[in-house]
C-alpha cells in the first residue's frame, strides 16, 4: 500500500530534479530554456504545496484537533518559500543569473530542511493519526490536476 511518506517523499524527489534543472539552465545562460525549466519547477512546487495545504494538513489538523502544531510551521515555511519563488521570478524576468542563483541556493537549504522535517516527522505522524483515511486522502491528492 502506498503511504504518505512514499507518495509525498517521491514528489519531493521529483521537485528536487526540477530544481536542479532550473538552476543548471540559468547557469547555462539560455534564458528561453531557463524560463521553461523555472516554470516547470514552480508548478511542481505549487502543486505539492496544494496537496498539503488543501488535503493533508486540514485532515491532520482535524484529527489532531489543532491548527497550531507542526502544520502551522510547515505552512509558514511554504510562505517563506513562495517569497523566494517571487525573487527568482523577478531575477528571471530581469535575466540576472547571480540574483536567481543566490535566491535558489537559499531556497535549496530552506526546502531541504523543510522536506527532511516532513519526511522524518510529519508524514510518519500523519500515517499514524490518519491511518484509516490514508487511501482516500491519497486519492484526493492524486486527483488534483497538475
Amino acid at each position: 500500500m502506498t503511504t504518505f511518506s512514499d507518495y509525498m517523499g517521491g514528489d519531493h524527489q521529483r521537485c528536487d530534479q526540477l530544481f536542479a534543472d532550473a538552476e543548471a539552465a540559468v547557469e547555462g545562460g539560455d534564458w528561453q530554456k531557463a524560463g521553461d525549466a523555472h516554470r516547470a519547477f514552480i508548478d511542481g512546487m505549487q502543486h505539492h504545496f496544494g496537496m498539503e495545504e488543501e488535503v493533508l494538513f486540514p485532515a491532520f489538523e482535524a484529527a489532531s484537533g489543532s491548527t497550531m502544531g507542526p502544520t502551522a510551521v510547515m505552512r509558514h515555511e511554504h510562505e517563506q518559500m513562495r517569497a523566494l519563488f517571487a525573487e527568482m521570478d523577478q531575477a528571471l524576468a530581469q535575466q540576472r543569473a547571480d540574483d536567481y542563483l543566490g535566491a535558489s541556493e537559499t531556497l535549496l537549504i530552506l526546502m531541504q530542511q523543510h522536506n527532511a522535517k516532513e519526511e522524518q516527522m510529519l508524514y510518519p505522524m500523519s500515517e499514524q493519526v490518519l491511518a484509516a483515511e490514508q487511501e482516500e486522502l491519497l486519492q484526493r491528492m492524486q486527483a488534483r490536476g497538475e
Binding site: G65, G69, V73
Partner: peptide, 9 residues
C-alpha cells in the same frame, strides 16, 4: 502529544 511537538526550534 502531537500538537506540543513544534517543528520550529
Amino acid at each position: 502529544n502531537y500538537t506540543a511537538l513544534s517543528l520550529s526550534q
